[in-house]
Design a binder for these strands. Structure first.
Length: 219
DNA sequence: CTTTGGATCGTCT
DNA sequence: GACGATCCAAAGG
């Protein structure tokens, strides 16, 4: 057990306006932000190092592509809320909702670096694993932080549920790595995955796409 | 190191 | 009835 302590200890909760934008803009801005989950006596903190953008009706890979359903309803609500879904009969994945109410969009939280509450995370994972494997995948992240379908709809901006995203002054990478999204069947060519280049906590090493042409694929 | 297949059930067609 | 915005263990190079 050797978790680092995040630099200064202070952090600001992100405001509604941060989320009320195009997921393509929110996603890279979330890199290096802090995900905070209050779990009873434990305060779990992790630095986001990998994300993917999903653009609702304009994105064939998005759960919201074909409109609102009971499952994805949160994505159609106000920005700054948590969208948690259940998949493969056993896994949960967490997103932050973007864009104004009525327009579905989200950023999937794919990986993070654990900063605090590592023992609680390890307990939740119920496996003997190192720090780097605690949060290096969207379903692993949810398992370690205790995020289930019950957390769907939580308002990250108020922080009233003990779950929020904070800024401790560490800037997003000026030149993040960009690549295609993982595990989808449609929209596989869209370079809408971002990660902190070289960070050992990412879910897995995939090919980077050169940034010059990724900007042209906003449809 | 990479590849492959099984697990497992809520959701939508 | 089919299929996941995944993970893991086992097998192969």
């Amino acid at each position: 057990m050797h978790g680092e302590i995040y630099a200064s200890g202070w952090m600001n909760r992100l405001a509604r306006g941060f989320y009320e934008r195009d997921p393509l803009d929110v996603a890279p801005d979330l890199l290096n932000k802090l995900l905070v989950v209050s779990a009873g006596p434990d305060r779990l903190v992790a630095r986001i190092v990998e994300v993917e953008a999903y653009r609702g009706s304009e994105d064939p890979a998005s759960h919201a592509y074909r409109g609102s359903t009971p499952r994805n309803a949160t994505m159609f609500g106000p920005p700054g809320h948590l969208y948690v879904y259940f998949t493969y009969g056993m896994h949960h994945c967490a997103n932050v909702v973007c864009w104004p109410p009525g327009r579905a969009g989200a950023v999937l939280l794919r990986a993070a670096a654990p900063l605090s509450g590592l023992e609680a995370m390890r307990r939740a994972r119920a496996r003997e694993i190192g720090d780097r494997e605690l949060l290096n995948g969207p379903a692993k992240l949810c398992k370690a932080l205790g995020l289930t379908r019950q957390a769907d709809g939580i308002d990250l901006v108020s922080g009233a549920s003990g779950v929020w995203v904070g800024d401790d002054g560490v800037e997003p990478p000026a030149d993040p790595a960009v690549g295609v999204r993982v595990g989808i069947r449609n929209g596989t060519e869209l370079p809408w995955r971002w990660w902190v280049r070289g960070d050992v906590h990412v879910s897995r090493p995939l090919r980077e796409i050169h940034s010059s042409w990724s900007a042209s694929l906003r449809a």
